[in-house]
Design a binder for these strands. Structure first.
Length: 460
RNA sequence: GGCUCCAUCAUCUAACGGUUAGGAUUUCAGGUUUUCAUCCUGGCCACAGGGGUUCAAAUCCCCUUGGAGUCACCA
């Protein structure tokens, strides 16, 4: 069985880059009928944050990702890590090191001064004497002293690291007994049965250390897939400083989960020329070994396009629900079908839709100056009056086409072009020169309101 | 700086030794729309550079250049 996992540290929100690796892990697990685990990496107490996990779950819920089983908190698994650290100690694969932080620091400075790589000098590796007084020991793992470690990566291929270049007997438990990252990740992934580790390639250089742990503990290695980073427009790793990196911000900005997921899955992965992927298609087609090797730039132009696309293809009923989040309650509006049909093809986001709806439903509070100048001339008043009386003399006005017929009749009678009536009418109804079809707007607000708005403009 | 990764239009990408290097987004020009948006049609735009290997290289190898990531008792 394929088991994947998403293992964020608790930062308080779900990062857009995190959502991508979570999505890929989720897809791969689901595609194979496997499990997708959510694990919070909170071994650093100073950063521990319960609410952080909830924020991630909230974001998962919004986009529709579901993890299997309970959320695993590393902070509640401390005894397990201690047990395995002890096991290594007992087997002579790890040892206690009594070097103080100050000594370590001094060693590093010396090495750096000599332009050498800063690394632990193994001074306690084979130490058998009495523990120095008053020293808290850290536990270090015995890493290989020579040779190389090869990461067989499903994205990057085989990556070979020289032991001399990157490894030393690294710390697996701090002086206070808490375990460190590279140790717990390996222990947890192994214990939780994770078979496929899909994560950002910023972790690639950590992997040899984790492999050391796997091997010391006799655990089988999982498959690794190191996914290239998402870069900002400067070409650097995407960070909080790059604007919208919190997934939930996309909800407030009016993006749909479908569009966001579709956008993210196409960053570093593709399937021929296909651009639009439903969740079902992603589930059917995604394979981590097809992931690109190179980083991609985060550019949301395509997300906007995708979002507009999904909105256009979302049933009105569903749009009603989504719009409620943006403060627009349409459920019981009798003209909601006409309204939604009129605007769903013109909005990039749900937020834009909400704004547009509000504009349509309320009499314009003010009129755009430039619009008045351009579209509301002296002759316009008479035309509007003629149209108003035509409306009053009509009955059974319900559909946009009903209103359209009235406009046609007036235009024919006055022998003018559509523009002559369209512009002033648009200003009366919307306060500006752009917007949805006038016939639709009138059908939505009704005859009475239409007349009121025309009157309001004439009286101004 | 050491180590590692990466390199096709502005951006996301296709190509898996043989194509006029394809698609999408953006942008531009037309068309549709009484307006705006949508939509439709079309245009502009790329194999980082240099060496090899090969009948044939964007594809394989090497070098250069450029970019990124990572080097903790953080995760």
């Amino acid at each position: 069985m394929i088991v994947t996992r998403f293992a964020p540290s608790p930062t308080g929100y779900l990062h857009i880059g995190g959502l991508r690796t979570a999505l890929l892990s989720y897809l791969w697990a689901r595609r194979n009928g496997g499990k997708f685990i959510l694990r919070i990496e909170d071994t650093d107490f100073s950063r521990n944050d319960e609410a952080a996990a909830l924020a991630i779950v909230e974001a998962f819920k919004w986009v529709g990702l579901e993890h299997d089983g309970a959320i695993e908190y590393q902070s509640s698994r401390l005894s397990i890590y201690q047990e395995y650290a002890q096991k290594l100690l007992d087997e002579g694969k790890a040892y206690k090191c009594y070097m103080s932080k100050e000594e370590l620091e001094a060693l590093r400075e010396e090495q750096t001064a000599r332009k050498e790589r800063a690394k632990y000098d193994n001074r306690y590796r084979d130490f058998t004497g009495e523990a120095p007084e008053g020293r808290e020991a850290v536990i270090r793992i015995k890493a290989p002293l020579e040779g190389s470690v090869t990461v067989h990566d499903g994205v990057k291929g085989d990556v070979v690291f020289n032991v001399a270049d990157i490894l030393d007997d690294f710390i697996i438990a701090r002086a206070d007994g808490t375990p460190t990252y590279n140790f717990v990740v390996a222990v947890d992934d192994a214990l939780m049965g994770v078979t496929d580790v899909i994560r950002g390639d910023d972790h690639l250089s950590n992997t040899p250390k984790q492999i050391v742990v796997y091997e010391a503990l006799g655990f089988p290695l999982p498959k690794f897939f190191h996914v290239p980073m998402i870069h900002n427009s400067e070409g650097k790793k995407l960070s909080k400083r790059d604007g919208a990196t919190d997934v939930m911000m996309y909800k407030t900005m009016g993006y749909t989960p479908e569009a966001l997921l579709n956008f993210l899955v196409r960053l570093g992965w593709s399937h021929g020329d296909q651009e639009i992927f439903s969740m079902e298609e992603m589930l059917e087609l995604f394979d981590p070994s097809d992931i690109n090797r190179s980083a991609s730039v985060y550019n949301t132009d395509k997300l906007d396009w995708l979002n507009a696309h999904t909105i256009k293809n979302t049933p009105n009923e569903k749009l009603c629900e989504l719009l409620e989040f943006h403060g627009v309650m349409l459920m019981s509006h009798d003209k909601k079908e006409i309204l939604l049909d009129a605007i769903k093809e013109r909005a990039k986001t749900l937020l834009e839709m909400a704004t547009l709806i509000t504009e349509i439903l309320a009499c314009p509070a003010e009129y755009d100056e430039a619009a008045l100048k351009k579209g509301y001339k002296e002759e316009s008043k008479g035309i509007l009056e003629a149209f108003a009386s035509a409306l009053k003399n009509s009955s059974e006005l319900h559909l946009p086409s009903d209103y359209h017929h009235v406009m046609e009749a007036v235009v024919a009678e006055l022998e003018i072009g559509f523009g002559k009536i369209g512009q002033p009418l648009r200003i009366a109804l919307m306060g500006k020169l752009s917007g949805p079809g006038l016939d639709s707007v009138m059908a939505i607000i009704g005859v009475e309101e239409t007349l009121a708005r025309i009157e309001a403009l004439l009286q101004r």
